[in-house]
Nucleic acid binder design. Structure first.
Lengths: 202, 202
DNA sequence: AAAATGAGCGAACAGTTGTAAGCTAAAGCG
DNA sequence: CGCTTTAGCTTACAACTGTTCGCTCATTTT
């Protein structure tokens, strides 16, 4: 096996070890370099061959989490084309992500308000992708001025994200309720923004 | 000085020390018993005379934070009676709290999705007070059915809370924008809920 | 074939942490 | 006044942490 290839392999082992140690009661901040190294099957000091410190690993994790989110978005778009129902499809896709990769979602959720400014802005950047894409959609679909489309998109993403957080602590038989509640909230927003916009125009 | 009195005094010293060590880059989880004891001016082992462990202290902090929130709500009600504008007054009062007691707000914000289930549900309980009160107001003021009033209140609280989180990382000259953006979002919600409710009735 | 590179390792260090055991001295109480 | 209670202290220990140093040895380069 080539050297670069092997290096990439243990790099992945480190990343996977870190992800797998995240859980409901273990945040990234509470991971230790030694624990991660142990699970990755390397000596603690070998960690430094791949990352300068835990922060650098953390930023990598956030990046990967963002990647998954964007893949999710693409998947949602495909489903919408076939399915039609924009709001419901989007939320259901998102909820599948939350339940299927809860550790990844938890990482974003926690680091969004965590103790590292770098982490916070990295997460914020990933979420902004969501917002920007949704805002563009709203701008096309409705007759909303740019500024308001963005505010509407931000509110929607906030509500959906928050519902994901709720789902993490709720028994799974609550998911259907959480989903339908959020759908209602988003419809209110869309409805209100449309009629409020009209009112402003007239 | 009486014994009980003195005990209460150092208990407060511990609580205050903990609060004062919280900051943008230091969460409760990253506080150590020894650090807190040091700042409180007692020996590390004396800590145990007041709390069984750090978790017990943490729950106390969350309780106190919740108390401040409820005081805030009362204050907001008073202002509304004089001022009239419900939405704007509520948000502005809340934003004053966020900026004036940012450590306290950060505690709630972080522990809401933290690693301790006990903390999470303690924070959730405090937020539910907000939601319940707002839902009751909406039920009286509008002709909304109970279930929908609650969903509307939850959405509103979510948006306001999230705006507070945004404010923590935004330069202070952005506060006015954040506030007015949120006001718009809440109006959309109210408007949408009202007309959507009507539509459902007909 | 010889030299250079670099991933991984073990040992060691200095620092921190939570917590147990036992003492002191002041307050409360009969 | 004597006895009990208890907040706070000092000392101590075992467990961990991140990180430095110097080594090995397989791969790559010259």
């Amino acid at each position: 096996m080539s050297r670069a290839e092997q290096k990439e392999r243990t790099r992945r082992a480190i990343i996977n070890a870190a992800f797998s140690q995240l859980s409901a009661d273990k945040s990234f901040a509470s991971l230790s370099l030694r624990e991660v190294a142990r699970e990755a099957g390397i000596a603690p000091t070998s960690f430094y061959r791949h990352f300068a410190d835990m922060d650098e690993l953390g930023l990598t994790l956030v990046d990967e989490a963002g990647l998954m989110l964007r893949q999710l978005m693409r998947q949602a778009r495909q489903r919408i084309e076939k399915n039609g129902s924009v709001i419901r499809t989007s939320i259901e896709t998102f909820m599948e992500f939350v339940t299927g990769h809860s550790n990844v979602f938890r990482l974003l959720l926690r680091e969004r308000s965590g103790t590292s400014a770098a982490f916070r802005s990295a997460v914020a950047r990933e979420i902004q992708h969501f917002v920007a894409e949704l805002a563009e959609y709203l701008r096309k679909e409705t007759t909303c001025p740019d500024e308001l489309a963005r505010a509407q998109a931000e509110a929607m993403v906030t509500l959906v994200f928050h519902t994901g957080a709720d789902a993490l602590d709720a028994p799974s038989d609550q998911y259907a309720y959480l989903t339908s509640r959020t759908i209602t909230q988003l419809r209110w927003l869309a409805h209100g923004a449309a009629s409020y916009g009209r009112k402003h125009k007239d």
